[in-house]
Design a protein around this nucleic acid. Sequence first.
DNA 1: TTGAAAGCGCTAACAC
DNA 2: GTGTTAGCGCTTTCAA
Lengths: 341, 341
Amino acid sequence: MAIKRAKTMEDIARLANVSKPTVSRALRNSPLVTEETRRHVLDVATKHGYVINRNAQKLRESRTNTIAVVLDFSSHRENRISDPFIFNLLAGVSEALGQRDQDLLLCSPAHSSVESLGSITTSRGADGIIFLGEGGRRDDLVALAERAVPFVVWGAVEKALPYCAVGSDNFQGGFLAAKHLLDQGRSRFLFIGDTHHAEINLRRQGFIKALSEELGSRAATLMVSDMSLDDFSYSASHRAATEMVEGPGPVPDAIFAASDTAAMAVISAFRAAGLSVPEDVSVVGYNDIPASEHFHPPLTSVRQDVHVAGALLVEKLMLAIEGRSPQSTMLETRLIVRASS
Amino acid sequence: MAIKRAKTMEDIARLANVSKPTVSRALRNSPLVTEETRRHVLDVATKHGYVINRNAQKLRESRTNTIAVVLDFSSHRENRISDPFIFNLLAGVSEALGQRDQDLLLCSPAHSSVESLGSITTSRGADGIIFLGEGGRRDDLVALAERAVPFVVWGAVEKALPYCAVGSDNFQGGFLAAKHLLDQGRSRFLFIGDTHHAEINLRRQGFIKALSEELGSRAATLMVSDMSLDDFSYSASHRAATEMVEGPGPVPDAIFAASDTAAMAVISAFRAAGLSVPEDVSVVGYNDIPASEHFHPPLTSVRQDVHVAGALLVEKLMLAIEGRSPQSTMLETRLIVRASS
DNA sequence: TTGAAAGCGCTAACAC
DNA sequence: GTGTTAGCGCTTTCAA
């Protein structure tokens, strides 16, 4: 087979006996072209399998209609941070972008400094950026906000943020979890999660807040501790929980884990050590992943409505690209109570 | 703030008192430029925060250094088909592409017919395509293979495939599962999975193969049935399993589910109905997701080594783009035996 | 309503 | 080694 050069707009113009600009107009449904010629041009174009060269188009136009999505795989894969949850978020974003006919450029922050992330837009690779999770890079994002680069962030939503963020109400989530555990009459609390992540730190703050409100009434009987790990994968959490149970320290009777995955790991470790859930210890997770409902015992969890989040992120980013300043949004969280607590 | 036009190569050339091509050469570390001028140009460029316009570059060069990755979110999200497993695959691909300095364009097939998928390359949006899962679109892929579009597929690997595929040995996986279940002395077998997907159909074939080999020795005692659902999410599987147990038909004593998620759902439903796993029924899943190890009871599962798969897919696609014809590769599967069987 | 000309920012070919 | 020229495929003036 001979090497076929892809057809250009010029080719189509020649084949249709019109000029290049007319083809361009016809393809973009410009009102400046007769219905008749439009049809004709479109016929010729489809017949010859013509597709427009996106790069030439992007070069010429000011917008690329491409959005960069930054997702830190290295901390999510193998469930290191959390749950398949973030995947649903990506799916939501993908769908919302598809509806607006925007391409999705997926980037790993590992290979890209903030510098180069910012330059994704200046290099015309994309019109804007969506960060799916701020990870431990708050400072970088703040720096980026000064650079007139349109971006939005899924993560912690706080008052003084210099950029637009969408996230669930992490503080409320932690607060609800603590309230619920208090209601079960628990007194030795354990928080599990990587507080270097602002989102997770907020969950912990909400958790602590609810506990300290209670502190007045029965101060001496409350105990709070943290389990800090480099890595909150199933296996690492499981290992740490096993060590805790077998260790000399007091064993908690109420656990709030910042991810369902970690919660399940801990339950599993505790049960293996002969403790019962929820008899000996109540456990609350986060994200309400599908498996939680049918875990043994079914897991109480904080649910964030991620279904709308993707669409919201895209919507706000589009505003930002148009030069407006979209507001941050905090999504409600809800405690789904099941047998584990 | 005044509107700042991004600096072009021409600007940098002027600022550095050299010509445009010299800047271009300096940036690309061409040997055709003095070390001295190179340094000088690079200095000026970084000082002014210059970044090359990727679109202009792509337009000019024949290659875009962008790879389209097609992932059917609609069937994966909310765990409809399977496990977070596919997410790890995406991570692997992302990493491998990053190492080769290739951009990743994420596409949903939902919004794109095969026609338009093929045109991703002709429209110069990407140099090639990686399909993560063939879904039910085998025919489309076969059609695409005739179109001289470089692409590779994660999915079923079969002899007569007109394209390059990488996948685990699904047949072997099913075979191993059946063998193992037979070893447990089981006789009423149930397969769970969407056989419209070629990968999953192969698992079933391997499963059936092992059973029919046994058939000679104790024909009359073997029973095989299928559970077909539109959707193999946790909840749908759970519901179907519950109906099965409560229904009039015979209840299986050995189950092979094409995903761990479905396996867990079924176990949960059976247990809720008063059956014991593995006493009354043995269950084997697929993918060996992290949660499987600590499920109650720990889940026997077929593990596919997905760690290398991403890198392999990328490597083969690069060959395809260079005009070579990479071979398909089948990855070993291994049965991880745990308490559920 | 359509066409001719110019130019987006870059690199390859060729001259010096 | 470096500069000059040309052109990738498209859209946007502007003129007809």
